[in-house]
Nucleic acid binder design. Structure first.
Lengths: 192, 192
DNA sequence: TAAAAAAGAATGAACATTCATTTTTATAAA
DNA sequence: TTTATAAAAATGAATGTTCATTCTTTTTTA
């Protein structure tokens, strides 16, 4: 038990270090030796937990994505009215991007580069299903535009990533007021 | 004259190769030797045109960004009515992202990673001024929501990048209809 | 006390950059 | 126009470093 616990801790440390280093320096400037050092572990130890560097990044991506979607749908029930459900999910996602900024930055970086295997990317998308179901329901009820889910996502959800990255770079702070404005824009862009 | 011409050609080839290789493999898996090979040039020659790898990528970013903004504002006149002006610019940007897909992908990748120097990033933003001016005018005239330009950008412009990347990955084609839908979402999200 | 986990040092490949040489170009004298 | 030549551009090979990964040994755990 204690043994297993220790292993999980180490694995978590490795993943945490990977996120932080890739966020700050990019994949290309994140050597295994630095990851090991930040996780207080020998470089060789990484290979007890992951096959190689690519595997480490893939697994990190999948874990963070799972954490993200779990958070997003935590307080949502599929019995909620469409508009309410969307608001709940949207605000949870916004909250995640603000509170778990490191995690969200990592996802944003991976989602726009060939860093991640296509397989791992697909794996990460799966968990978004509840949102797609909600939209299908909204379309049925004539509340949400009958357009491709990709377009809905592009306007309703993805802008949050841009805002988060912009905030992280300084020059702009995403406060309560901004968030409410953003939410209105999101809803306006997908509602009928 | 012929000499200078040749030099510019070679420089362009290098930039083109950089874009293609970084798009497909990412910065970390794009060695100078491959860039040289694709541009039909010796690795050493790159260093006659650029200081080092970082400089090559920075310069590539700035050049592509200039090409992008030049294209975006080509047919726009600051005397146009706000709504018309926005539509013109938006559709030019959409056109660029579809027709100059390689260039647009490169920008999207750079905009979300620490690949590029902060200085070069700033440099690239400058040329967006006409759009910000248009928005200022729109706010004055009570046509556009009085919110931060970052929020306007996040909802009106940035979604196009997501759609382009998604299309590039397959599973979805950005045709005329989709584009019109996207434009409506964009306008709905920023109009009062 | 044997098996598992972890460590640090070693290995070898990949790579950015530089070096020494060759090729091309522009100029100008014949 | 041809030829000579110095400067510029380009090259392929060499250099030295960085880094992912593995090997051997030590430490920890059950």
């Amino acid at each position: 038990m204690a043994k297993l616990q220790k292993s999980i801790d180490k694995r978590n440390e490795l993943i945490k270090a990977t996120i932080e280093l890739v966020n700050n320096n990019g994949f290309h400037a994140t050597p295994m030796s630095k990851i090991a050092k930040m996780a207080n572990v020998s470089p060789a130890t990484i290979y007890l937990y992951f096959e190689n560097k690519q595997d480490l990044v893939n697994k990190t991506y999948i874990e963070v994505k799972e954490k993200y979607t779990k958070y997003a749908f935590e307080t949502y029930e599929s019995s909620m009215p469409v508009k309410k459900g969307f608001e709940i999910i949207w605000k949870r996602i916004a909250e995640f991007k603000l509170k778990e900024c490191e995690n969200a930055m990592f996802l944003a970086q991976c989602d726009n580069t060939p860093t991640i295997d296509e397989t791992s990317r697909q794996e990460g998308i799966k968990h978004l299903q509840p949102l797609l179901d909600l939209w299908a329901r909204g379309k049925n009820e004539g509340l949400i535009k009958p357009v491709s889910d990709y377009i809905l996502y592009a306007y309703a959800i993805n802008p949050l990533s841009f805002l988060m990255i912009t905030q992280k770079r300084g020059a702009f702070t995403l406060d309560k007021t901004h968030l409410e404005e953003a939410y209105q824009s999101a809803w306006n862009s997908i509602k009928i």
